[in-house]
Every structure is written in C-alpha cells, then in structure tokens.
Simulated scan of single mutants.
Amino acid sequence: MRVTEKGQVTIPKNVRRKLGIVPGSEIEFDLREDGALIRPATSSQSRAATADFMDHIRRHKGTMDLGGMTGDEFFKLLRD
C-alpha cells in the first residue's frame, strides 16, 4: 500500500468486508512495538451507526424500480 501526501491509504476491500468497515465507519489504530493494529472503533455510537447503515442497505436491496427497463438497458444508460 502507498501512503498519499495527505497520509491516507486505501483499506483493501477484503479487509473492509472482514472487519465490517463501511462508508462512515470509524476505525482505531492501536500502536504496538512492532507496528499498528487497525480495527473498527469500539464506541457503541459507531457500532450503532454501522448497524443502521447495513440494515438500510439490506432493506432496500433489489427494490429499485427501473420503469420497465432491463438491467442491461439500465447499465447501458449509466455508461452513456
């Protein structure tokens, strides 16, 4: 991984999935003698926000009305 000039890195998708990190998640760094440990923040507010977001996504999964368009037609519309 490369660090940007602003000190930012991209957390790989497989790591985000495994840790349950979604947009808006807060994370913590635990500094150790040999490096650092990254983990989701332990605050109950952060966990609640993450759970709310994931519930929202699950409730709306597959509910988009395409107005009669097929999925292929919709994706073509997005690309054009």
Rank of each mutant, 00 (worst) to 15 (best):
residue 1 M to G: 15
residue 2 R to D: 13
residue 3 V to D: 03
residue 4 T to I: 04
residue 4 T to K: 12
residue 5 E to A: 08
residue 5 E to G: 13
residue 6 K to S: 13
residue 7 G to D: 06
residue 7 G to M: 12
residue 8 Q to R: 13
residue 9 V to F: 09
residue 11 I to G: 07
residue 12 P to H: 10
residue 12 P to C: 09
residue 13 K to C: 01
residue 14 N to Q: 03
residue 14 N to E: 12
residue 15 V to R: 07
residue 17 R to C: 01
residue 18 K to A: 11
residue 18 K to P: 00
residue 18 K to T: 02
residue 19 L to F: 03
residue 19 L to I: 07
residue 20 G to K: 05
residue 21 I to W: 04
residue 21 I to P: 03
residue 21 I to K: 03
residue 21 I to H: 02
residue 21 I to G: 04
residue 22 V to S: 03
residue 22 V to E: 05
residue 22 V to H: 02
residue 23 P to S: 06
residue 24 G to K: 07
residue 24 G to L: 07
residue 25 S to G: 09
residue 26 E to N: 06
residue 26 E to A: 07
residue 27 I to M: 08
residue 27 I to P: 04
residue 28 E to V: 08
residue 28 E to C: 07
residue 28 E to D: 14
residue 28 E to P: 02
residue 30 D to I: 14
residue 30 D to E: 13
residue 30 D to L: 10
residue 31 L to H: 08
residue 32 R to W: 00
residue 33 E to T: 07
residue 34 D to N: 13
residue 35 G to K: 01
residue 35 G to W: 00
residue 36 A to N: 01
residue 36 A to V: 10
residue 36 A to E: 04
residue 37 L to R: 07
residue 37 L to E: 00
residue 38 I to M: 15
residue 38 I to Y: 01
residue 39 R to T: 06
residue 39 R to F: 02
residue 39 R to Q: 10
residue 39 R to E: 11
residue 40 P to M: 10
residue 41 A to S: 14
residue 41 A to M: 04
residue 41 A to L: 08
residue 42 T to E: 14
residue 42 T to Y: 06
residue 44 S to Y: 01
residue 44 S to D: 09
residue 44 S to M: 05
residue 44 S to P: 03
residue 45 Q to L: 11
residue 45 Q to Y: 06
residue 45 Q to C: 01
residue 46 S to N: 15
residue 46 S to Q: 12
residue 47 R to A: 12
residue 48 A to E: 11
residue 48 A to G: 06
residue 49 A to Q: 07
residue 49 A to K: 13
residue 49 A to G: 02
residue 50 T to F: 00
residue 50 T to H: 00
residue 51 A to R: 10
residue 51 A to H: 11
residue 51 A to N: 08
residue 51 A to E: 14
residue 53 F to Q: 05
residue 54 M to S: 02
residue 55 D to H: 10
residue 55 D to Q: 10
residue 56 H to L: 10
residue 56 H to T: 03
residue 57 I to Q: 14
residue 57 I to K: 13
residue 57 I to D: 04
residue 58 R to Q: 15
residue 60 H to Q: 15
residue 60 H to A: 13
residue 60 H to W: 14
residue 60 H to V: 04
residue 61 K to N: 15
residue 63 T to Y: 04
residue 64 M to E: 14
residue 64 M to S: 09
residue 64 M to R: 15
residue 65 D to I: 05
residue 65 D to C: 05
residue 66 L to C: 03
residue 66 L to K: 11
residue 66 L to R: 15
residue 66 L to I: 07
residue 66 L to T: 12
residue 67 G to Q: 06
residue 68 G to A: 07
residue 68 G to Q: 08
residue 69 M to L: 14
residue 69 M to W: 11
residue 69 M to R: 15
residue 71 G to I: 14
residue 71 G to C: 04
residue 72 D to I: 03
residue 72 D to M: 09
residue 72 D to W: 11
residue 73 E to L: 04
residue 74 F to W: 15
residue 75 F to Q: 05
residue 75 F to N: 09
residue 75 F to G: 00
residue 75 F to T: 07
residue 75 F to P: 00
residue 75 F to C: 01
residue 77 L to S: 05
residue 77 L to A: 10
residue 77 L to H: 05
residue 77 L to Y: 12
residue 77 L to R: 11
residue 77 L to N: 00
residue 78 L to G: 02
residue 80 D to R: 03
